[in-house]
C-alpha cells in the first residue's frame, strides 16, 4: 500500500484516538500534578433558615469563594508535584505498618487495601475464567449437532447481561432474606447473613465475575476448537493417545495464542473491577482501585470534588495495568522474535 493511501485510511482513527484517548490521558496526568482551588475569603454573614416553629438566625464566619469579572468562581492552579500521589498512597502510614510488620495496619490504608483486593481479584479469577470457558467449549463441542445452537445461546446469556444489573440481581437473591439466603438457611438450618462480613461478599464477587466473563472465554475457545487440525488429532488417536493426552498435547498448544489473548483482555478488565463493588454494596468491607478513584471524584454534600487525588489514583491504576500486562506481552514478544 502506498504511504499516502495508508495515511488516509489510518488518519481518522489516529485522530480519534488522540482526541478521545491520548488527550484525556495527558490531561489526567497533568491534573495529578496540579491542584485547582477556588480563592476564598472569610466574611461574616447573617443566615436565617426555616425551622418548624420559626426562623433560626445565626451570624457566622463564612468561607466564600471570590468571583471574577464574569461572575464565575475565581480559581488558581498550583503545581504540587507528587503531593496528590502521596495523599493517595500515604507513604508515612505505609512505613509505620511495615515497620510494625502489621498486615492489619497495612489493610487499614485505603489504597493498599484496594490494591490487595484488586490484585487478588484479578489473579484469582483469571485461571477460573480460562478453565471454565475451556470446559464449556469442550462440552459444547462434543454435544449433539441438533442441540448445539440452544446450548450456545444459553451459555452466552450471562455475558449479555449488563454487569451492574447482573450484580444487582445476584445481590437481591442474597440480601436480607433473599430467596437464596432463605434457601441456604433452610438447608443448613442456621442464620446466614451474606452481606455482614468481607469474605462472603468477596466470594460472591469472584463467583459473579467468573459467571459473567466465562462465556466470552467460551466463545473464543469454541471458535478456536473449530480450527484444530483433524489430521493431527487422528494421528494422535492412532498413536494411542488418550483423550487427556490429546487435549494436553494437541488441543491446548493449538489454543495457546487464544489463551494469551484472553489473559490480556481479562487482566485489563478485572483490574478495573468496579461494578461488583457497586452491585454488591461492598464498599464497607472491600474496595477496589477504581472505587477509590470514584470516591475521590464523587461530589461531597456541598458540591466539591477531589480531582487531583482522583487523577493520581487513576494514573496509578493505569501503571498497575501496564505492569500486569507486561508479563504476558513480553512472552508474546519473545515468541514473535523467536519464530
Amino acid at each position: 500500500m502506498k504511504k499516502k493511501t495508508f495515511a488516509i485510511f489510518v488518519g481518522p482513527s489516529v485522530f480519534m484516538m488522540v482526541l478521545f484517548i491520548a488527550a484525556p490521558l495527558l490531561s489526567v496526568l497533568w491534573q495529578s500534578f496540579h491542584v485547582t482551588q477556588p480563592v476564598y475569603e472569610q466574611v461574616e454573614v447573617e443566615i436565617c433558615t426555616p425551622g418548624l416553629l420559626g426562623s433560626v438566625c445565626t451570624t457566622e464566619m463564612k468561607t466564600r469563594p471570590l468571583l471574577n469579572d464574569n461572575g464565575k468562581i475565581l480559581t488558581e492552579t498550583t503545581f504540587v508535584g507528587l503531593q496528590s500521589y502521596r495523599n493517595v498512597i500515604e507513604p508515612d502510614k505505609l512505613r509505620t505498618a511495615i515497620a510494625r510488620g502489621s498486615w492489619r495496619d497495612l489493610m487499614n490504608i485505603r489504597f493498599w487495601s484496594a490494591l490487595r483486593f484488586t490484585l487478588v481479584f484479578t489473579i484469582l479469577t483469571l485461571p477460573l475464567v480460562l478453565g471454565t470457558g475451556l470446559l464449556i467449549a469442550l462440552a459444547v463441542n462434543n454435544t449433539l449437532q441438533r442441540i448445539k445452537g440452544p446450548v450456545i445461546f444459553v451459555s452466552l446469556l450471562p455475558f449479555i447481561i449488563t454487569p451492574v444489573i447482573g450484580a444487582l440481581s445476584i445481590r437481591w437473591l442474597f440480601l436480607g432474606d433473599g430467596i437464596l439466603t432463605a434457601g441456604l438457611e433452610w438447608w443448613l438450618d442456621r442464620d446466614i447473613a451474606m452481606f455482614a462480613q468481607a469474605w462472603t461478599i468477596e466470594l460472591m464477587m469472584y463467583i459473579y465475575r467468573v459467571w459473567h466473563v466465562a462465556p466470552f472465554a467460551f466463545v473464543v475457545f469454541y471458535a478456536g476448537l473449530q480450527t484444530v487440525n483433524n489430521d493431527a488429532l487422528e494421528a494422535a488417536i492412532i498413536d494411542g493417545a488418550t483423550r487427556w493426552q490429546r487435549l494436553r498435547y494437541v488441543i491446548i498448544p493449538h489454543l495457546m495464542p487464544l489463551v494469551i489473548f484472553l489473559t490480556l483482555i481479562h487482566l485489563m478488565d478485572a483490574y478495573r473491577v468496579f461494578e461488583e463493588i457497586v452491585g454488591f454494596s461492598a464498599s464497607a468491607h472491600v474496595i477496589s482501585l477504581q472505587w477509590l478513584t470514584y470516591e475521590f471524584l464523587l461530589q461531597d454534600g456541598t458540591g466539591a470534588r477531589a480531582i487531583s487525588r482522583a487523577s493520581a489514583s487513576a494514573i496509578l491504576t493505569m501503571i498497575g495495568i501496564a505492569i500486569l500486562l507486561g508479563v504476558p506481552l513480553r512472552r508474546v514478544w519473545r515468541e514473535q522474535r523467536g519464530s
Binding site: 443566615i47 433560626v56 454534600g301
Partner: peptide, 19 residues
C-alpha cells in the same frame, strides 16, 4: 424541633468532613 435539635450545618467544611 420543639426540643433542641439543631439544623444541619450550612457550610463547605461539613461537606468535606461528611465525606
Amino acid at each position: 424541633a420543639a426540643g433542641d435539635a439543631v439544623p444541619y450545618p450550612m457550610n463547605k467544611y461539613i461537606g468535606s468532613m461528611h465525606s
